[in-house]
């Protein structure tokens, strides 16, 4: 699967994304596949006079533009020594607690390169890709998150 954003209801399950990624690298010098999945965390928040907890997360992207940014980050990461392939799949829409919002997969020669690359890729996509995240709370309020 190509890097990019995809509406939640059109996204294949992670198992399919992983198998396609893994089998696409058969015969290559890959000794480690490192993956990251970002999920919705149930977070307690101080909010005005009282406390509330996260109920849902909304993720918004710009069609085409956000995908291009993810593809560029993945391509640059895959050009590093010891990295064979990188895929970033960011889902969009409204997510419940525990649901996956993003998957990053890195195929590397060795685990050290893989762990380092995935850390850098996650840091980069959060900072550089036009994506926005809104926390929706159990008390009915909401807040756009800035990292």
């Amino acid at each position: 699967m190509r890097s990019g954003t995809i509406p939640k209801d059109k996204a294949p399950p992670f198992g399919e994304i992983y198998e396609e990624f893994r089998t696409s690298m058969r015969g290559h010098a890959v000794g480690a596949i490192v993956t990251f999945t970002g999920t919705v965390r149930e977070d307690a928040k101080e909010h005005g006079a009282g406390a509330t907890t996260t109920r849902q997360i909304l993720i918004e992207a710009i069609e085409g533009v956000s995908s291009e940014h993810l593809q560029r980050i993945a391509a640059e990461a895959a050009a590093r020594p010891g990295i064979e392939k990188v895929t970033i799949v960011h889902l969009t829409g409204t997510f419940e607690i525990g649901e996956p919002m993003v998957h990053v997969l890195v195929g590397a020669s060795h685990r050290d390169e893989g762990f380092k690359a995935i850390e850098d890729v996650v840091t980069r996509y959060k900072k550089e890709t036009p994506l926005w995240k809104k926390e929706i709370y159990t008390d009915g309020t909401s807040r756009w998150i800035t990292h």
Binding site: G38, I59, V102, K126, L131, W132
Partner: peptide, 10 residues
């Protein structure tokens, strides 16, 4: 012209 808030991926 897009007006883009600070980014915050998931």
């Amino acid at each position: 012209v897009g007006i883009l808030p600070p980014f915050s991926g998931g």
